[in-house]
Design a protein around this nucleic acid. Structure first.
Ligand SMILES: [Mn+2]
Ligand SMILES: [Mn+2]
Ligand SMILES: [Zn+2]
Ligand SMILES: [Zn+2]
Lengths: 143, 143
DNA sequence: ATAGTAAGTGAAAACCCTTTTCAGTTAGAT
DNA sequence: ATCTAACTGAAAAGGGTTTTCACTTACTAT
């Protein structure tokens, strides 16, 4: 279940953040976007309904939502980051090296590996970062 | 087995690249460094023996070595890239969230997962990024 | 409602890392 | 020794992100 704009707004006020028109606008765009979007792309969309907003505010709002765990961030080597609504289910990303398309997948099944590594190294493991890189169906066809 | 500077140099000449003093200097530093280093860090080291070299040349040489598969590149979200000699064994990292210690591990066993994801998404998967985060033995004891 | 105040905003500049440009230099072939 | 495409370094440009700062605004307390 995807969080609604209202739910996100209520988290903000509850945490003591002010609910400004700019923040509402950014949240709306994030909630209504299916794909991962860069700050610039989100900015462009937010401007359609809120032309006076500054790119800086988009950056700041995204950082805030990210810190609150409300959106997730994908790093794409060298290029810009991209953000999307944090889904409730644990998942990972599959990134197309050519066009940048991001697909999600769930069930990473790392528990067995994690236990082995933990045993071998003595680390207490608390999280993992997993991402696959490849070429999406479209880019394969095009090639 | 780590490749030697001589071996790398011979690959360059064989591919038709000129063997300049600057390239030799960069290669020497890369070969003699155990850790992943950023272009700026490598530049600083190369300057010790070759003060007149330009940072641009370091970037160009690293890019060339990377394209030839002689060194590998790690993207660290937002920050600079870092490079290291391409190791013969595929491995991943375990990072301590408290002290930053990095441990290596091999045998990531992602093939089964990779095949499932590939089937489900249509992606042709070419690589993966896997990293565990936790607390090392020392930091656990200290806490 | 009003006033007060800390939080938030946008323009511009600063910052980093990286790439491009270009005139001058050099490795390696002949 | 000569030639020339490859290479170099300085400088500028590029692209994304963060900082700065004077101004504005959302919320709190009257
Ligand atoms: Mn995702
Ligand atoms: Mn692996
Ligand atoms: Zn693609
Ligand atoms: Zn530690």
């Amino acid at each position: 279940m995807r969080p609604s704009a209202r739910k996100i707004a209520s988290v903000l006020t509850q945490k003591g953040y002010k609910l400004t028109a700019q923040r509402r606008a950014v949240i709306d765009v994030v909630v209504n976007s299916r794909q991962h979007l860069s700050p610039a792309a989100l900015y462009e969309r937010v401007r359609r309904t809120h032309p006076a907003i500054g790119l800086v505010t988009v950056y700041r709002t995204l950082e805030m939502l990210y810190e609150l765990g409300l959106i997730c961030r994908v790093h794409r080597g060298g290029k810009s980051r991209s953000y999307t609504l944090a889904p409730s289910v644990h998942h990972h990303h599959l990134v197309c090296a050519q066009c940048g398309t991001v697909a999600d997948f769930t069930r990473c099944d790392l528990e067995v590996l994690q236990q082995r590594i933990s045993r071998e190294t003595g680390f207490k493991i608390e999280g993992h970062l997993l991402q696959f890189l490849g070429h999406c169906r479209d880019c394969q066809t095009r090639a």
